[in-house]
Design a protein around this nucleic acid. Structure first.
Lengths: 291, 291
DNA sequence: AAAGAATTGTTACATATGTTTCAATATTTC
DNA sequence: GAAATATTGAAACATATGTAACAATTCTTT
């Protein structure tokens, strides 16, 4: 017997054997598809399960609920609870830190908590299809331009360094580089712009994205809010949570996403990339850069 | 108008700025409460959000859906996907080794999982006393040198940028800078070296730390293992987990620690730092760098 | 300042929803 | 084997739901 899933499993399995055949079938369906029960109407559930609508009304009563809506509510909360498991850990940590000894350690704990939450939420909202699309696009692009300023520039340099182990010909653009206009001239349909734009939004970054988009380049942007001005010039976009107890936004989730992208790119490039990485590593060792 | 990609944020964020105020509010609510949208009826959503029912009908159309139900369907599938992947994650933790070639999205899930683990472990092993000591040291140092190469250099540049908002006179050292020897000559007892050295360990970084240490500077290092060669030349050190399913170590925990340090420094510098940050922000706004 | 357009809330309405009623069927009991 | 009872699905019902139509309002444009 499974101890989990609180009210649902308990309420139903307790009376299960006393239920009539049809009600048992309905009960099975509810237990096996709580997400559907939570999100679809009774009649649609009836349709999907091949049972008559009143059966579910009767089931709810039979297992002790006042009405079907009450049973549905249990499914709702269960669904929410499950999808919150990761974030919960973060919340617990934050609450725990408040009870801890005074001010010492609280600071770190809060930041750690919000970092965990940011990464969890990044993952929750991440669309695997879109991610795969973007990785494909980047992997096969004939030219990639990295676009970002200030802090964003630093994390893009991080990405650039790692990717350049596998693919040496990526281009990096500092937002305030004087050669920007030169670079823009070369931007065509084969170009892909990967940009990071986190509040405060830098005008130059957005303008570059706008122009690149007009010139037919694909613009993939990583930003922190739906109101970010770069989104309307983007062909793909990721919204990454940057919540932080400090005065500045936290980039940990951004970095996580970039690391994921890097991994996907290397996998897409396959053996050739791996060989190059090996060669770089061995050369560095031979030269004595590494210890 | 583009064909709705099936993804929530993609569909909404692209048109967000074109939406009217009320529709923006509705869009925010949908993005922030997709579980509720999936499980409750339109009218109840309207009630909870304090908006008029037709607003959500209109929102759906405005972002490219044929009807509200289509938008709701996207929320449903997103919700299902989340509870699914969490179950997968749980299974993976149990099975452990047979994770190759899983479903789509597994790649991101693994990296996210290891990132969460890394940050949690960073926090578990973090000694608040030592952290406070280091923050004190850095905050009162008459000169700070940032030391790191390759990827480590990039994350230090990130730190450098943020700290320089508050304190403009921090020095940044690229490990392969030709002026290294000049810099070394200036290193005295008042100097503090903050270094990041993650596998593969760069010889130059370690050598610089060794010399700096001999010259009487404090050396604070962030590294990933007790076998790291930089540790024996360090006065303080943090060991940060960098586990990752990719071919490279993950820097998310390193970044988290640096962000924590930044926050502590700014707090220690107090009002003066805050004022400078304000001034920088306002100037940038006035110049028109920001949007 | 006036006219026009866009936005927003209210009302109205056709449809979908959850439940009750009731007849038909299956099951039990004597 | 028949009467009594329980179970089941179809139809009926009152209510809730999503959206169109309209009116009131705000925002632009001239």
């Amino acid at each position: 017997m499974e101890p989990t899933s609180g009210h649902l499993q308990g309420a139903i399995s307790k009376n299960f054997l006393q239920l009539s055949p049809q009600l048992q079938q309905a009960a099975r369906y509810v237990l096996e598809n709580p997400e559907d029960v939570a999100t679809y109407s009774l009649r649609q559930i009836a349709h999907r399960s091949g049972l008559a609508p009143p059966t579910f009304s009767r089931l709810a009563r039979a297992v002790g609920f006042h009405e079907y809506e009450a049973l549905r509510d249990v499914c709702r909360t269960e669904l929410k609870r499950n999808s919150m498991t990761l974030a919960q850990r973060a919340h617990k940590l934050q609450e725990g830190s408040k009870l801890n000894r005074g001010a010492r350690g609280t600071f770190a704990a809060q930041h750690v908590a919000s970092s965990l939450e940011n990464i969890s939420e990044l993952y929750r909202k991440l669309d695997p299809e879109q991610l795969a699309d973007v990785a494909d696009t980047l992997a096969t692009a004939e030219r990639v331009v990295l676009l970002g300023a200030l802090s964003s520039r630093a994390v893009l340099e991080y990405l650039h360094h790692m990717v350049s182990l596998a693919k040496p010909d990526w281009i990096f653009v500092n937002a305030s580089t004087p050669s920007t206009s030169t670079l823009l001239a070369d931007i065509t349909k084969g170009t892909v712009v990967l940009s990071v734009s986190i509040r405060p939004y830098i005008r130059h970054t957005v303008q570059f994205a706008e122009l690149a988009n007009q010139y037919g380049a694909e613009v993939i942007s990583i930003s922190d809010d739906i109101s970010s001005p770069i989104l309307e010039h983007s062909t793909h976009s990721f919204l990454v949570p940057t919540e932080s107890p400090q005065f500045f936004p936290s980039y940990v989730a951004v970095l996580t996403l970039l690391e994921i992208l890097t991994g996907m790119l290397v996998r897409r490039w396959g053996e050739e990339a791996n060989k190059r990485i090996d060669r770089v590593e061995k050369t560095s060792h031979a030269i004595g850069d590494y210890m």
